[in-house]
Amino acid sequence: MIAACLAYIWIVFLGTLAIRQGWDKIIHRTDRCDLSLFQLGLKLLNHFSDHDILIPVAFQIFNPTE
């Protein structure tokens, strides 16, 4: 159960990272976003694995002023 919860949090982290870094424009449509953070995270993970990009593995809180 703990592993599933941590995996969920990590995928949501990837979804927020996609939005903050602008990768959502690469992995999803550009005119609007109708995916959840979880779905964006899964798409970003798939994109990284397809293109052999280093996958960020972190659990950190972003500073909103950055």
Score class of each variant (00 low, 15 high):
28 H>N: 11
40 L>M: 08
34 D>P: 02
23 W>L: 12
29 R>Q: 15
42 L>V: 13
61 I>K: 06
7 A>C: 11
27 I>K: 00
2 I>C: 10
45 L>I: 00
24 D>I: 03
33 C>F: 00
49 S>T: 08
34 D>I: 10
45 L>E: 03
47 H>K: 03
14 L>K: 00
8 Y>C: 08
4 A>F: 12
5 C>E: 08
3 A>F: 07
43 K>C: 06
58 A>H: 11
39 Q>K: 08
10 W>C: 04
48 F>Q: 06
47 H>N: 06
25 K>A: 08
39 Q>H: 08
31 D>V: 07
18 A>F: 03
60 Q>S: 14
15 G>L: 06
10 W>E: 07
47 H>L: 00
30 T>F: 09
19 I>L: 15
55 I>S: 02
9 I>M: 15
41 G>K: 00
46 N>P: 01
42 L>N: 06
40 L>P: 00
7 A>H: 14
12 V>A: 04
22 G>K: 04
63 N>I: 03
27 I>F: 00
66 E>W: 09
63 N>H: 09
5 C>F: 08
38 F>T: 04
50 D>N: 13
51 H>G: 01
49 S>Y: 07
6 L>N: 14
58 A>Y: 09
23 W>V: 00
45 L>G: 09
39 Q>D: 11
4 A>Q: 14
32 R>H: 15
38 F>Y: 11
56 P>A: 06
19 I>T: 14
15 G>E: 04
66 E>T: 13
15 G>Q: 05
36 S>I: 04
50 D>K: 14
4 A>G: 11
58 A>N: 10
3 A>K: 13
28 H>W: 11
58 A>D: 10
1 M>S: 15
34 D>N: 14
31 D>Y: 07
23 W>P: 03
55 I>N: 03
4 A>M: 12
2 I>V: 12
5 C>T: 00
17 L>Q: 07
46 N>H: 13
21 Q>W: 04
35 L>A: 08
38 F>I: 02
62 F>C: 06
63 N>S: 07
49 S>N: 09
2 I>H: 15
57 V>T: 07
55 I>P: 01
66 E>H: 09
15 G>D: 05
16 T>E: 09
54 L>I: 01
13 F>V: 10
19 I>H: 09
35 L>P: 02
7 A>I: 07
34 D>S: 11
57 V>D: 05
10 W>N: 08
55 I>A: 03
47 H>F: 10
5 C>G: 08
27 I>P: 01
51 H>W: 05
25 K>D: 02
51 H>D: 03
44 L>P: 01
32 R>Y: 14
28 H>S: 13
59 F>H: 12
21 Q>H: 06
29 R>C: 14
52 D>N: 13
62 F>H: 07
28 H>M: 05
4 A>D: 15
35 L>E: 05
50 D>Q: 14
30 T>R: 14
47 H>T: 00
23 W>H: 12
3 A>P: 01
10 W>T: 02
59 F>K: 04
4 A>K: 14
36 S>G: 05
55 I>L: 09
66 E>S: 13
36 S>N: 05
7 A>D: 14
36 S>M: 01
62 F>G: 09
57 V>Q: 06
63 N>A: 05
12 V>P: 01
18 A>Q: 02
9 I>H: 15
23 W>F: 15
5 C>P: 03
7 A>R: 14
32 R>D: 12
59 F>M: 11
29 R>D: 14
34 D>G: 08
8 Y>P: 01
57 V>Y: 10
16 T>A: 04
40 L>H: 03
41 G>C: 01
